[in-house]
Design a protein around this nucleic acid. Structure first.
Lengths: 184, 184
DNA sequence: GCCACCATGTAACTGGTTACATGATTCG
DNA sequence: CGAATCATGTAACCAGTTACATGGTGGC
């Protein structure tokens, strides 16, 4: 009688992705698709997650008794509800020391090996990426007031996003000053 | 007779990790361990790779005829040499458009859900991470002159590293101004 | 000459990505 | 009402991490 779903649950080691699902489910029951959309638009910039992953983690969390799957709706949609063991697991998880950041920045790889890249190609790439970052920064700035008013902690993360994007653009400017964005 | 190693090789799709191995092997034959050390100390900050991965990719690259494995030395060491098809594959790869960066910053996740974290714990974590970033920045600054003198393109990537770390520290300072680093 | 540490690699597992399937909804 | 798009999910594959094994080397 020890093997209840609660007991199983207590032993499941959360990973950051499934932990964040629990965190988002605190706000109420959601389907995988809904979670994916919210995650993408909130922590997506600094915590990359794909939908497939979410569905897999939800299944695991359900088996562990951390979330409860609801009825299957249209298009097979199921909303999941945060269960009590899940809430406790989340609280334990969120208080542990977070690891270092991991960055994968393919453009820096290209630049690192820049010797081997045709100059105009390189310039074209740099300009395209710069434009992308400008757009991202603009989007952050547009949403900022709302987030700051409504959600203090997420706003601190967004602040990072803004400072980060400003830094990236400043870096592009140093490349431009070296003439690397011209041509192509 | 079409299935020579060259023909096989031409079809192998490179991923960024194996491509960068080819890039590093341009500088001469190296073992997996040696590659790991050089990668860690050069692109490690923006291109995370583990040793196990390197060994696996080397095997694949060898099968494809992109690198040539040498004799087994002491402690099973084998140095790999860049072969001609490998050099061509690298040149094709490095000229393609690099994708967007992917960031996984666990501390931001913690902060995003900061409501749920005991205040002193949070302060402790933030201070610890700040210290880590200060150390990283100091290390970059120390190596910078050498890299700028010797390797222009890697120096541009390092420039990013410095700007990034400065931005991260500036962000920590805004948190400090909000009193979030105090206590604990 | 033994202990600690460095160099080198493999195997197994977990997490992340890509490709695919299909049922609603909207709109021209 | 048919085409395009959105919502929802699964399965298979590939990449990344963790844990482990073991042989040299250098210093006491």
């Amino acid at each position: 009688m020890l093997e209840t779903s609660g007991a199983r649950g207590a032993r499941l080691e959360l990973n950051a992705t499934s932990a964040s699902l629990l965190g988002f489910l605190s706000a109420g029951p959601q389907s995988g698709y809904e979670l994916a959309a919210r995650i993408e638009s909130t922590i997506g910039a600094f915590w990359n997650v794909t939908r497939s992953q979410i569905y897999r983690e939800l299944r695991t969390l359900e088996e562990a008794g951390f979330v409860l799957g609801g009825e299957t709706g249209s298009r097979d949609r199921r909303r999941f509800t945060l269960a009590d063991p899940g809430r406790r697991a989340f609280e334990r998880w969120i208080a542990r020391d977070p690891g270092q950041e991991i960055i994968r920045f393919p453009l820096l790889l290209t630049l690192f090996f820049g010797d081997a890249v045709p100059r105009r190609e390189l310039a074209r790439m740099l300009r395209a990426h710069r434009a992308r970052h400008e757009a991202t920064l603009a989007a952050y700035r547009a949403h900022r007031p709302f987030v700051e008013r409504e959600e203090p902690f997420p706003a601190l993360a967004m602040r990072f996003g803004i400072i980060y994007e400003e830094a990236v653009l400043a870096w592009f400017d140093t490349l431009a000053a070296d003439g690397l964005l011209e041509g192509g």
